[in-house]
């Protein structure tokens, strides 16, 4: 069972849970499509922009996969630094450079839907809201190792 030390984390858990659920379902879908008997390892990248609590995400993955054929599967999680590029002036910058300037409710909105960053983040050089998230947006499956 999940073991959450702080009540506050219960609130944060929920979104991580929804994303973990989507990973498990996607892996099960891939298994069916590729006719895999077992999945040994799933590599997952977590984009820094979405600010996922990795421990909570990992616990959710564990609990959700427990009741499935992915019980023994290893989920390797790596964090991916978020990087932006301005469409207007070409400047590129990292999330860590601007993180401090984002308010709590704004961070919460980005956590829900990373695209909301376009309503919040501006190019540090020219102030344009028209930028690309080059990498590190959200959760994705990088690779999967299985046996047919």
């Amino acid at each position: 069972m999940l073991n959450l030390p702080f009540v506050i984390e219960i609130l944060r858990m929920v979104h991580e849970w929804a994303l973990a659920e989507s990973i498990v379902r996607a892996v099960l879908d891939i298994m069916r499509e590729r006719k895999l008997k077992t999945v040994l390892e799933v590599k997952i990248a977590i984009g820094q922009l979405q600010q996922i609590e990795i421990d909570i995400f990992r616990d959710a993955l564990k609990e959700i996969s427990e009741g499935t054929i992915l019980k023994e599967t290893k989920f390797s999680i790596e964090e991916e630094e978020a990087e932006f590029k301005c469409r207007n002036c070409g400047y590129t910058w990292k999330f860590s450079e601007i993180k401090e300037s984002i308010k709590e409710d704004e961070a919460e909105a980005i956590h829900f839907i990373p695209e909301l960053a376009h309503a919040i983040i501006r190019c540090p050089r020219c102030g344009s809201p028209d930028f690309i998230v080059v990498r590190g947006r959200g959760v994705r499956i990088v690779s999967l190792r299985g046996i047919t």
Partner: peptide, 20 residues
């Protein structure tokens, strides 16, 4: 707030919204 989204951002936001 203004939310200037382009094509792929729109798709991403819709997928995220429908998934959660």
């Amino acid at each position: 707030r203004a939310l200037p989204l382009r094509g792929d951002d729109i798709s991403n936001a819709i997928i995220e919204l429908l998934a959660i």
